[in-house]
Design a binder for these strands. Structure first.
Lengths: 218, 218
DNA sequence: TAAATAGTGTCTATGAGACATTATGTA
DNA sequence: TACATAATGTCTCATAGACACTATTTA
């Protein structure tokens, strides 16, 4: 019983996923999703950790990040026989979204040769260990779908942000440009609905400064 | 490692879920979702059955239905410590949709006292065993959500159906009346898109007969 | 002929997409 | 002043909701 994590962030205007290099067989030397086994206990009293807790623990172990500051969500469970050549392993996959201002901490803290942020483009040809390529594909599709109808874009942006910055997140994740005017219209509806509020100050850019906002509830 | 099934059908114009009465402790005498343990093997060669295969096997064992003729889909995995008081059990939940013309077979084949179709209304107050109440709630929410943007309505209707019949399925599942004209408009778009085709004959009713259709691809 | 229900048409509001235009800062 | 980009406005089209109306069958 394992958990695997598909951890996304945005670095250099690219959507990226954290991968770790395997140090042992099988798939020694290949890149894989971070993950590990769930701590389970057989006795009625000590049954071990919750699945969600295991996912948050792995997130912390691999990135050093505080799980409270990262969006983490169950994705699906992968349990084909033979997916791990050693023995039967059923893996509950989670996806996580790390705000880009927190991503550098990961690189500084971890072993750069061991863990690395890979752009999602071309990641399919990397030949991930186990069935991790498939898990990644499912995660990417889920994140893209949820971006359209949920709040998760705010988990890929610093605590304060401008409308153009949020629009870039959409463009990067969906790999498709968004119309500035139409995006602003949708954003203004969220503003009216009270999901967002204006933050003090202006974001200084190369030209006209932009209004700064922050996500309200949470 | 277990699988649990939330099996839906429509009987007497009500959305219903198949529950089984537990014959053993814990929760002896309580109603529970059908399910069972996944057959796992430790050896690299014989690792046991796939998760999806386990779900289909359980479906067949509990209902006698051919899994090929039933929509079945992974829902989520429930793994809180203590959810089974005996020992640690992690359960991968699936939901299934049984066409109403197949549902009577289930009742005829099984032990009526052991397995029963319960209307979803008031099922929360039934006090299901384990965390099955929670699993049911998640499944119901998922089915309702998918009804709006996917094909699953066709899995809750006989192979041929009329527009009013399909509309009733929506009304029953969502517990909300649909406007006949507006529903027909959406239906006609699917017809133009080639998802549906007309079937021979007419459905005889108490008044004007209705045109019969069938779902195309699969 | 009355009742019931299948099936059609219309009006309005909302949101998406495409795109033109204005406003306001920096270099 | 030139340039970049934030911010606003407009036109069109697709769809949803509400609802009035017509068509066709049975009792």
């Amino acid at each position: 019983m394992a958990v695997d994590l598909v951890i996304f962030t945005i670095i250099d205007a690219q959507l990226r996923v954290l991968l770790v290099r395997r140090g042992e067989a099988p798939f020694k030397g290949a890149w894989a999703l971070p993950g590990g086994f769930v701590r389970v206990g057989e006795s009625p009293r000590a049954q071990g950790e919750d699945l969600d807790a295991a996912a948050r623990r792995e997130l912390h172990e691999e990135t050093g990040l505080d799980p409270e500051r990262v969006h983490i969500e169950q994705l699906a469970t992968f349990g084909k026989a033979g997916r791990d050549p050693r023995t039967r392993v059923i893996s509950v996959a989670y996806f996580a979204l790390v705000r880009p201002d927190l991503a550098p901490i990961v690189k500084a803290g971890g072993d750069a040769a061991h863990a690395q942020w890979f752009p999602v483009e071309g990641l399919g040809e990397l030949g991930l260990a186990f069935d991790h390529g498939e898990i990644f594909e499912v995660a990417l599709a889920r994140v893209r779908a949820k971006l359209e109808y949920s709040d998760i874009a705010f988990d890929l942006v610093p605590l304060t942000f401008t409308i153009p910055e949020l629009r870039h997140v959409h463009a990067i994740v969906l790999a498709k440009e968004m119309d500035p005017g139409n995006f602003r219209r949708r954003f203004n509806r969220m503003l009216e609905d009270g999901f967002i509020e204006q933050a003090p100050g202006k974001r200084i850019t190369a030209s006209k400064p932009a209004t700064v906002y922050r996500f309200k509830r949470r």
